[in-house]
Write a protein that binds this DNA or RNA. Structure first.
Length: 438
RNA sequence: UCCCCAGUAGCUCAAUUGGCAGAGCGGGUGACUGUUAAUCACUAGGUUGGCGGUUCGAGUCCGUCCUGGGGAGCCA
């Protein structure tokens, strides 16, 4: 008999097939049971009728509990009453293994309870949908860069020093010395760009910041393209094209998953190039004015020179129904490697991209300082250990060129696309300040 | 690190001013041949996060600790 996956059942209407999976839920009467069976590719309703199966098999079907693993044979048929439009009329079934007292019931549960059982929560419909969207996004990002002549350039997880001296790092034992887990592959990607012209690094990064918000993980994934011979406009264009590409791709291939998540896709379908661009000076003006007009609202105070908080990002992106770029941030709030604007030496040639619908910062990027002596001066100004950057400075000694890149936070982007309130569901096993199990 | 909030049955929650600790779901038993988180009946299930205090009496008030959640700072 033909073994098929649930997602392919519509192509086997009228045929006898076998599926193997787990019992998601069952309901019904003393003579007719509706078994919802999931096999990883989807969920199908299987009809177990007493007069078809006989006493023994029907009693077995009725005794099956949630998450019992099983194999079912039956006839595929289309039926409007079945969730998904297709169902399986059961002719034979076999239990593979029992599941007693499965803790995640079809009713509601609190997030701490579910996170403690993340290894099981992954089986639930919405979590299943989230991680399929994650898969699609990773695939789309790789396709986007691969199709444009970028080389995948993997950078190390172990690093001897901080990229940005200010941020907390995870220290680990490294034989007789210590190392840090990377917080960005960027500096190494710059070396890659000087070798290959266009590269991207895609992997996990680690931040030991004691952040306890819906936008933070201690371990998260980031894609960082780095391009030789590119300017600020070129970088923003690249970010814009990538964003439009991945949004379209998820809408096209994962509409079922978005539906399972009850995501209203209209705001995503409305996203078109170009995205609005705001100079930091304009953004600061908007925020100062907003704070003036909303004196009772807490957390909106702002003065020129400040960095944005979560609330500020929402105020800035609210008027637009597409992502927004903020450019030319003040140099004193940005890292040492960002190149200054020659016309405005107090500003950097950098940008952030804020997602629509209050998603916050999804992308941060910049043109890099390419002059050796200026970079040395910046390292001194930021009080960073010069000897840790000798190899990085070599990139400016041997044929330095204008270049730049950006980083996209994968989980934040998944959260934005899926319309969920918290990014912890965007990764199989989230690592947070007070949560490292399972 | 700081600020705010929460902790009561396996889960989600209720309990008036300090006065007999409850419901729904899940589990168990039974009824039902088209259910959509099926429905209905019956049933078992509790050291109210820990310790200490106030009180005739504390789930409720006070102190303290623990655990978790949200936010700030910082960031993707």
């Amino acid at each position: 008999m033909k073994r098929v996956y649930v997602e392919d059942l519509s192509r086997h209407t009228g045929e006898q097939v076998e599926i193997a999976g787990w019992l998601y839920n069952q309901r019904g009467t003393a003579k007719l049971r509706f078994l919802l069976v999931r096999d990883g590719s989807g969920i199908v309703q299987c009809i177990a009728a007493k007069n078809e199966l006989g006493e023994g098999l029907f009693a077995l079907a009725r005794s099956l509990t949630q998450e019992t693993s099983l194999a079912i044979r039956g006839t595929v048929r289309a039926d409007e009453r079945a969730p998904g439009g297709y169902e399986l009329l059961v002719t034979d079934l076999a239990k593979i293994n029992d599941a007693h007292d499965y803790p995640i019931t079809p009713k509601e549960h609190g997030t701490p309870f579910l996170l403690d059982r993340r290894h099981l929560w992954l089986r639930s419909k919405k979590q299943h949908a989230m991680l399929r969207i994650r898969h699609e996004l990773i695939w789309a990002i790789r396709d986007f860069f691969n199709n444009r002549g970028f080389i995948c350039f993997d950078t190390p997880m172990f690093t001897p020093n901080a990229v940005e001296g200010t941020t907390d790092l995870f220290a680990v034992n490294y034989f007789d010395t210590s190392a840090y887990l990377t917080q960005s592959g960027q500096l190494y990607a710059e070396a890659g760009a000087m070798a290959h012209g266009r590269v991207y690094t895609f992997g996990p990064t680690f931040r030991a910041e004691k952040s306890k918000t819906r936008r933070h993980l201690t371990e998260f994934w980031m894609v960082e393209p780095e391009v030789a011979f590119i300017d600020l406009d070129g970088l923003i264009e690249l970010a814009e094209e990538m964003t439009v590409y991945i949004v379209e791709r998820v809408l096209e291939r994962r509409c079922n998953e978005l539906a399972d998540l009850e995501r209203d896709t209209a705001p995503l379908e409305a996203i078109r190039r170009p995205f609005p661009r705001l100079h930091y000076d304009e953004a600061a003006e908007i925020l100062v004015e907003y704070a003036k007009q909303h004196p009772d609202e807490g957390g909106v105070e702002f003065k020129h020179g400040d960095d944005f908080g979560g609330r500020h990002e929402t105020i800035l992106s609210d008027p637009y129904h597409r992502p927004v770029f903020i450019t030319h941030f003040p140099a004193q709030i940005k890292p040492f490697y960002m190149k200054r604007d020659p016309d405005r030496p107090d500003c950097v040639l950098g940008f952030d991209m804020l997602g629509s619908e209050g998603a916050g910062e999804l992308i941060g990027g910049s043109v890099r300082e390419d002059d050796h002596d200026t970079l040395v001066q910046r390292i001194r100004e930021h009080d960073l250990p010069m000897d840790a950057f000798d190899w990085y400075l070599d990139l400016r000694k041997y044929g330095s060129v204008p270049h730049g890149g950006f980083g996209l936070g994968l989980e934040r982007t998944i959260t934005w696309l899926s319309g969920r309130p918290h990014l912890r569901e965007a990764i199989p096993f989230p690592r947070m300040l007070y949560r490292m199990r399972p």
